[in-house]
Amino acid sequence: MVSVLLQTVTEMKTEIRRRFAWVYEKLGLFLGISRKSREDVLSEEEMCLVRQARQTAERFFGVAAETDRSAGDGEEAGSGEGSRTKEAVGVAGEVLAALSPRRRMALIEDFVYALLDLYGMSECDVMITDSDQIFSGAEIASCMGKCSFEEGSIYLNSHFLLQEDERILRKCAVSAVHEVRHMMQWQAVQGKLEPHIPDDKVEIWRRNLVGNYIRSAMDFEGYYNQPVETDARNFAALVTEGF
């Protein structure tokens, strides 16, 4: 009798927690005050960095294809997440697919070095590799890039750059920008990044990166929705929109 009662109470507690979490999330989204939406807003200075990066992308991939809006629209600043709901339109995939694998790897590498230079991170390295020490097991077919803060290196998975599919090749370019943003986050946390990032945002990154990072293989939802990943996706979407 007691055990049945305890079981019922436990189930009720679980259900109440589930419902409370659901209401909390929906209410936050409805009022537009969720932590996620606040963090996603880019400052004017950061939008300037985005515009500079877009100019760099233009040097490598040509003029961006037209989309519903450009990254320069002030009011839309930091809303790159929304733009990704549309079918990706871009020229980077086409440009990369037209090149031999060796030349496309060289182009992506030069593109990343140009972005690193732009943000004052010239000491960082870029490596295109399929090494199983970097991309182990299933990662070779599921992980496009990695960032090593300790080594100051960005690793891009060559497996994807060998594909002829324009959409995959475009994703490689987006992924490269995503990894550059992670490197910027770390440099900002270290106080070494020249372009100014608002202090409260850097503090959120610091809390996430130092001991509180969730790896994709451990909890994909947790990985996907953590601040540094949301920010890197948002940044990469703004930089590469139309490319």
């Binding site: 990704r84 990695k146 992924s175 790896r215 939802e221």
Partner: peptide, 14 residues
């Protein structure tokens, strides 16, 4: 949301 997230790239910090 879960399927869209999976369709995107994954990456990692090492």
């Amino acid at each position: 949301a879960a399927k869209a997230a999976l369709a995107e790239m994954a990456d990692g910090l090492i």
